[in-house]
Nucleic acid binder design. Sequence first.
DNA 1: AAGTGGTCTAGACCACCTT
DNA 2: AGGTGGTCTAGACCACTTG
Lengths: 234, 234
Amino acid sequence: MSEPTRLSWTDVRDQIRARILSRTYAPGDRLPRDEDIAQEFGCARTTVHRAMQDLAQMGLVERKRKGGTHVLSDPVTRATFDIPITRCEVEQRGAKYDYQLISRALEQTPTGVMARFGLHTPREMLRVKALHLADNRPYVFEDRWVDTQSTPEILDVDLTRENANEWLVHNKPFSRVDVRFSAMNATADNAHHLDTPEGSALFVIERTTWIGSAPITTVQSLAAPGYQLAANTG
Amino acid sequence: MSEPTRLSWTDVRDQIRARILSRTYAPGDRLPRDEDIAQEFGCARTTVHRAMQDLAQMGLVERKRKGGTHVLSDPVTRATFDIPITRCEVEQRGAKYDYQLISRALEQTPTGVMARFGLHTPREMLRVKALHLADNRPYVFEDRWVDTQSTPEILDVDLTRENANEWLVHNKPFSRVDVRFSAMNATADNAHHLDTPEGSALFVIERTTWIGSAPITTVQSLAAPGYQLAANTG
DNA sequence: AAGTGGTCTAGACCACCTT
DNA sequence: AGGTGGTCTAGACCACTTG
């Protein structure tokens, strides 16, 4: 007798997904209750729950207590990106990594930086500009602000030798992060550091972190032309 | 007696995360076995498992059978983005949405498009250029290729009235998607459609979909200057 | 008020990976 | 070979939210 192996939650997930793709469950439809699906597949309700949890996280269905499970009618594409330490990113491309400190100074935060942190009053922070190189070519130019109230230790770090990006990642855990992507034309200053014509289109990553509600750092990373960020597969 | 309420998996997750943030469990460290943690917290192993699953997905720890659970030593920032249907995006900003078809023609795929699909030989596809407007101002210019082998129905759609973006999302489910972000300078043609100076930095979203291994569509969306994409919070 | 998803438990077995 | 995470089950109770 060919007894079928027991269904796993991924099997259930894939079957349900197939039904959604084939419009057996069409956009907007309400799916059967977990318990009924469990009965149909001959598995425990927990297994169906695990499958549904995954589908909900992928953005395929929406689940509400009492409301049941519905196929989203205007599906969104959900993509996840990993933003590694710049050195790791460079080395993973098989390139030689180098780092140059460009400037380091205490400055009052301008309104743009205050907005990123959600602050209403200016504050003195450490501003650090630095360049990351891959195979001796400019790779990413970063303009960073570090809050010296939450992170006074940064003042003692020799940033000519140690990279603020890595020092923070290794020494300053954060509890909240905000990430934004955009594009901008290189200013004369940017262009100079990145060795690219003024006005070049640069890919911009803005990353701001907090510990609790206290600001830690915000950084605007400008990637040299040609930079492309790919979503995680899977 | 104040009997503490039973621990939920989110409580366990938050406690473990706090220990990681406070370096109780430092980067590279191996965490205790799930079962030991369960005993410490006085809960079932399943509950610890659920908590760990979440931490692993956040990119804070790595789990391996037999190898145990380790705190990642080079943590990555993981961010999730939702890319909605353009109309929804515009309407959610409280703006009026409009759409204009710019061109529609059968063309041989150039090498760039073949590469996005992973094809080795050129193929004739339907190329559709269109403009999305918010409050009568150009918002996103899209340059799309639709595979007429997998999606012949597209040839019968009146794209002057119906928007290829939405038609595909509602009628052509996909099983795999690739998303990439970059930046580029507006060409004369782009600049004209987006009503912006030539050379403006444009935010670029490339989105390619397949059903099984068959290509469906690939689209390069160029956002008007000022566009910014924010990661999901939470 | 009642229906539905969310979670917890305890135990069992499986599958992968390191040693 | 053995240790660890991964999953399944069956049952129970809880919590949200809709009618």
